[in-house]
Design a protein around this nucleic acid. Sequence first.
DNA 1: TCGACTGTTCAATTTTTAATGAACTGACAG
DNA 2: CTGTCAGTTCATTAAAAATTGAACAGTCGA
Lengths: 164, 164
Amino acid sequence: MSDAKPNTLVEIERQVVSLFADGVRVAGLPRSVGEIYGLLFVSAEPLAMDDLVVRLNISKGSVSQGLKFLRTLGAIKEVEGPDVRRTYYEADIELKKLVGGFIREQMRPHMESGKDRLKALEAEVAKEVDGAKQAFYDERVKKLERWLKQAKLVLPLIQRVLGE
Amino acid sequence: MSDAKPNTLVEIERQVVSLFADGVRVAGLPRSVGEIYGLLFVSAEPLAMDDLVVRLNISKGSVSQGLKFLRTLGAIKEVEGPDVRRTYYEADIELKKLVGGFIREQMRPHMESGKDRLKALEAEVAKEVDGAKQAFYDERVKKLERWLKQAKLVLPLIQRVLGE
DNA sequence: TCGACTGTTCAATTTTTAATGAACTGACAG
DNA sequence: CTGTCAGTTCATTAAAAATTGAACAGTCGA
């Protein structure tokens, strides 16, 4: 292959990669993850790890980690490619799936641990001896529980809307 | 006041502060912002900047920045307090308002710039000479535009649901 | 069994981000 | 005015997060 040297991206690819690199930062993900998904998104042919290393000019380690993450999200698919010994990837471009994966992998766990921590808080409030303080704390904890319930209500709704 | 020394938080306060400190990180905000909002959330009485500095044991600079940010979100309210020369704050505990502020201040700007960048991309695709490639790029750009539209659809929906 | 090659892991390093604290502004009381 | 105090700003420092790259593991054909 003639384009086996670093940073061989055409302008369109460059722009898309940069768009995703910045985009994923909103979700608190590392730039490299966005770059990888971005290049897969804008590529008609599937790419193997080495293609990503060379064309994005980032390390094998980063690409391996990034692909692993994108796989757990369900944001990319493994497909066949020219070289049978390599694993090739293409982007899964269903927004529903991307958002669903993100919610499942990144948000649910936090919400689950939040639920536990609220339980602990409740127990702590029960110990409070000052009646007025206890009433206040109790109210606040109830508010937090309502927030959590609303969050649990909103997430599936988002997924449903993106399903159209 | 007797509790004017660092880190004078009772267990309940400690837990709530920590809960918010971790919670805001999901949204990509600095720990200190969560701590500040958390302490205000769990305090029955309004607090001034100096209370936050002393009780959370973080610097005046951080607290000033954090309060500024929370003010722009609309997550806190300025209120009267014991010392007329100080500005006191209390937490605004309407989830709708918090999320609305976050969307307005943190998400909308990104989406606006995304819209511009998509325009630039379209222009770039128009230059593509290879017909097959152009068709593929065009399809992908259209997909991105659809995503953006869906995002713009979802955000108001979230706010409406949180309005209950 | 060996060598060539794909892909993973993780300690070390670099880069990015947040926190600090000293200098500053502005308001106000005496 | 002048000194004090609340609050802001921002260059420096510290902490956290991402990236690197070298060692390693697994596979396969000769």
